[in-house]
Amino acid sequence: MSVEFFRDIAKPVVSGFGITAKRLKHRKVTVMYPEVKREQYPRTRWRHVLKRYDNGLEKCIGCSLCAGACPARCIYVEAAENTDEERYSAGERYAVRYEINMIRCIFCGYCQDACPTGAIVLQKDFELADYKRESFIYTKERLLEPLPQVV
């Protein structure tokens, strides 16, 4: 038990583990993801949703402004005229086909900015990974909000 032992071995070991002991008291930072989902930031942009009015009519009027604004060119809109028998949207026209290639989309939100009726909204559902490339073509049926429940 010499002075060298304490100076060269014991003291560094104690001070080294001291850092470990200090970190043990530290707040735990890991988000236990599948069980606990972290709170997304208010302006987070993920999966698109096509909105409806409260009476069930679609907000999308098939104007293709979203497709024009899209930098990745991943939106395809095909419009048709509304008739009195078959009315889908509040405007003159509605989107017969509305497709987003979700794997090409970069979630920039320009479509949301361009939309005159606020029909397309990027929400916070980020769990989009899938096995096949075909399954990333999100059709209108997948994008559209479900009909509001009639009370």
Partner: peptide, 10 residues
């Protein structure tokens, strides 16, 4: 395949 630009860590 993971969509996103970039995909978040989650």
């Amino acid at each position: 395949y993971v969509p996103g630009c970039p995909p978040s860590p989650d």
